[in-house]
């Protein structure tokens, strides 16, 4: 009685189990499992995205730091270059000024020398003229008679002889 296969029970069991299986498969298990899968996928995606975002932020930070370092280095370089350029320009200006001053000085000295020479020449000429005029006057006075003229010529001739011997 206990272990007895009943046709009716097996019949109804098969029908109702198959009915439940097909109804639930279509209207319950499929939407439930799909939604669960979707939710899990969503959570996984969100986690992955968060991870990616974290990595991105990290790389961005590293990039920022590199950029800062670069900028700092560039600034250093620029400053150094500017300082060099400044120094060079100052030096150049100094040299130029010195050269100009030297040139000016040289020209001034030249001019002074020229003026001096001219003045000396003029003075020499004037002294010579004055001397000639003085000598003319003296000579005119002293050589007013013929005897004096003759004595002088002789004297000059004697000197010339002395020089020649």
């Amino acid at each position: 009685m206990l272990i007895e296969f009943s046709f009716g029970l097996i019949f109804w069991m098969t029908i109702s189990f198959l009915a439940v299986l097909f109804i639930l498969r279509k209207f319950a298990w499929k939407p439930i499992l799909d939604t669960l899968h979707e939710r899990e996928q969503g959570i996984e995606d969100a986690l992955n995205e968060a991870k990616k975002a974290r990595e991105e932020i990290a790389t961005m930070q590293a990039g920022n730091e590199a950029l800062m370092r670069e900028a700092r280095e560039e600034r250093e370089v620029l400053l150094r270059e500017a300082r060099e350029i400044r120094d060079k320009e100052i030096a150049a200006a100094k040299d130029k000024a010195k050269a100009e001053a030297d040139a000016l000085l040289a020209r001034a000295q030249e001019e002074i020398r020229n003026e001096k020479n001219a003045a000396i020449t003029e003075m020499k000429n004037q002294v010579a003229e004055l001397s000639i005029q003085i000598a003319e006057r003296i000579l005119r006075d002293k050589l007013a008679d013929g005897a004096a003229q003759k004595a002088l010529v002789e004297k000059v001739m004697a000197d010339a002889d002395k020089h020649l011997s």
Binding site: V20, L24, F27, W29, P31, I32
Partner: peptide
């Protein structure tokens, strides 16, 4: 079973 799981599926 049908009542339980169809209502659960509706929830989803």
């Amino acid at each position: 079973m049908l009542l339980i799981f169809l209502s659960v599926a509706k929830g989803y």
